[in-house]
Design a protein around this nucleic acid. Sequence first.
DNA 1: CTGAATCCGTATCGATACTG
DNA 2: CAGTATCGATACGGATTCAG
Lengths: 123, 123
Amino acid sequence: MDQPEWDPYVRECPTRQLLDRIGDRWTVLVIGSLADGPRRFSGISRSVQGVSQKMLTLTLRRLERDGLVTRTAYAEVPPRVEYELTELGRSLREPLKALEMWAKDNMATVLESRTHHDEAMTA
Amino acid sequence: MDQPEWDPYVRECPTRQLLDRIGDRWTVLVIGSLADGPRRFSGISRSVQGVSQKMLTLTLRRLERDGLVTRTAYAEVPPRVEYELTELGRSLREPLKALEMWAKDNMATVLESRTHHDEAMTA
DNA sequence: CTGAATCCGTATCGATACTG
DNA sequence: CAGTATCGATACGGATTCAG
């Protein structure tokens, strides 16, 4: 149980990489897309609008490497590949969902703040 | 109260920008650094190890524009500037803290997963 | 369908030097 | 102390093309 004392406030702490990963443009959305169960590549692609094949592949590979997602390829024609959250991946759902909720709940306020701020600058 | 139906899964939804902002390298740490109360520029700088002046300034400006942080400059010599979370900013503390906790709790597992994955690749 | 590989513009970020 | 300004590397990410 004894874990090293990870501290993202320290320079080269690996947790920073982890925060970075979580924070990239697509990770949050992809994990959200897998939240309700396994999904195929094309399904995720449709769900996360605007993601390119390249970035989706890359994101999934990283998630796989980090043990958050499993990849299962079925030997069929045409190919079918399913991605699924691991237990670890599922444990990330809740904090990420909270973030998504916060973004939704406060988007209007933030937008308003930006407008005011920009007007004050111009004036 | 009726808010538009923000949906980060849709292409040009502003919530994506918000998630991007939250997800950048420094935002999470800076907000964490301000979680316990107001702090000066240099204080934040020391707390968030490795952040450059440029990036700290940029991050604070963005947070200010988004209404998450207030900036108060005192007309003294030498100058003193304090940053403080707004109510909105404070509402972000909890979800971000959860994320930070997750990163700490699972860093070891992720590191292990990476090692296994990379070994499997080499083999 | 599920990718891998390539090209390439751009945004990001760090380092450095300078200012009030 | 608290910034601003500038330069340069490089990582990110989009579009396109090709393949199993």
